[in-house]
Each structure stands twice: as structure tokens, then as C-alpha cells.
């Protein structure tokens, strides 16, 4: 991991107004995983958006990384209560990937290698709020953090930022994902502390 230069981003008083309720700041990058870390061959890597009509839009690794990318600097909030400020990524905006996709869907189900899924409203992937990220702190994204590519949707708890992302299904009806079917909140807004169902 690259060393981030001290003071590159202004760190306000320990957490301060950057810390959602119930969170604490960490400077590590804890690894959370519900299964073994897959080793994914870039030659066989694809990312596929599938519409509610079954139309598939797929990108190879070469195609994805040749698209115009952005370099978001974002705060991460994990439902296990750590937050990490000022993380630097490179990735392709979902606005770009979904621009030519014809769909009336209001929901998205994100799919990952190994079977993990997570759901969110489609609008939470749009308007500069989400990326397919493949670099972290200037280096290729490590497998334990979701490499070669993960979804990055930092305004929601980090379980929504699916590691090892392989595709997104656009759906007319909401379909709860892996943690959302096991007691976690369907939406997961850290600022409203939506950790569990009913929060």
C-alpha cells in the first residue's frame, strides 16, 4: 500500500463532523470477508450489467480500464463501527457504465465472485455516487480489499461496496442481498445509523 503523505487531506479534530453516529476512526484498513478470498484472472474477468429485460452489457478488463476513470477521495464507514477518512481510489463511474443501458429498473442487485450479493436502489449508483474501483492509494486493488475490482459506494455502509464485483442486475422489484436477508438494514445509511432491520 502506498504511504499517504501526512496532511494531504485536512484531518479535523478526532473524527469531528466526519464521523457518523456510533463510529470510531481507524487508520488501518481492516479486512472483512464472508468467505475465502478469490484469485481472479484478469484475462477472464468481466463486468456485466443485466437489465430487467435480460439484455447484457459486458466489459472485459481491458475495456473497463480503458474507459475514462475518476479518482474519488472518500470516507469509508463499516457497519462494524470503524470509519476510515480520505481514502483514494481510481475507478469508472457507474454513470458512465449505465449511460447507454436502457432500463426502467428502480433497484440493483450487485453480484460478486463467490456468491456474495448486495442490493440498493438504482439511484444510489448514479449522480457521481458510485464507481467500479480498481486502484487504491495509487496501486492496483489488492485481493483482500476486493481486487481486481470492487464496487465503491461510500455513502452507504461498506458492505454495500461489494468486493470482487462481477455484475449488477437491474430489477423492477427489490431483492435483498446476502447481509440484507440476515438481519442487516436494507438501505444502510451510516448517517442515520441504519445498521439492522428496523433501524
Amino acid at each position: 500500500m502506498a504511504v499517504i503523505s501526512r496532511g494531504f487531506h485536512g484531518r479535523r479534530r478526532a473524527g469531528g463532523d466526519k464521523l457518523p453516529p456510533g463510529q470510531y476512526e481507524t487508520r488501518d484498513f481492516p479486512v472483512l470477508s464472508a468467505g475465502p478470498t478469490p484469485r481472479i484472472d484478469l484475462d477472464s474477468w468481466t463486468f456485466t450489467v443485466t437489465t430487467e429485460a435480460g439484455a447484457a452489457h459486458a466489459w472485459s478488463w481491458r475495456e473497463m480500464t480503458a474507459l475514462p476513470s475518476e479518482q474519488p477521495v472518500v470516507d469509508l464507514h463499516c457497519v462494524t463501527k470503524w470509519s476510515k477518512f480520505g481514502t483514494r481510489w481510481r475507478g469508472v463511474s457507474l454513470d458512465l457504465l449505465l449511460a447507454d443501458v436502457e432500463s426502467a429498473a428502480e433497484f440493483a442487485l450487485v453480484r460478486s465472485r463467490g456468491g456474495y450479493t448486495t442490493n440498493l436502489p438504482l439511484e444510489d449508483l448514479l449522480d457521481g455516487k458510485a464507481w467500479i474501483a480498481f486502484e487504491y492509494e495509487g496501486e492496483e486493488l489488492a485481493p483482500q480489499h476486493g481486487g481486481p475490482a470492487r464496487l465503491l459506494v461510500p455513502h452507504l455502509y461498506l458492505w454495500k461496496s461489494a468486493k470482487w464485483v462481477e455484475g449488477i442486475d437491474l430489477l423492477l422489484d427489490d431483492e435483498p442481498g446476502f447481509w440484507e436477508t440476515a438481519g442487516y438494514n436494507n438501505y444502510g445509511d451510516p448517517w442515520r445509523e441504519q445498521r439492522y432491520q428496523g433501524d
Binding site: 481492516p30 479486512v31 472483512l32 470477508s33 464472508a34 468467505g35 475465502p36 457497519v79 462494524t80 456468491g115 458492505w159 447481509w179 440476515a182 438481519g183 442487516y184 439492522y196
Partner: peptide, 21 residues
């Protein structure tokens, strides 16, 4: 266990057999 919940997988095929949140 380093996850939002406990996930127990089959040692033979890797499928999730149990989750506890």
C-alpha cells in the same frame, strides 16, 4: 467471523451452511 456476522461454510463444497447475525 471477520464480517458483519458469522458465516459458516461447508468444508467440502464451500457453500454457506449457516449465518448468525
Amino acid at each position: 467471523g471477520h464480517a458483519p456476522g458469522l458465516v459458516a461454510r461447508c468444508p467440502d463444497c464451500g457453500q454457506v451452511m449457516m449465518r448468525l447475525v
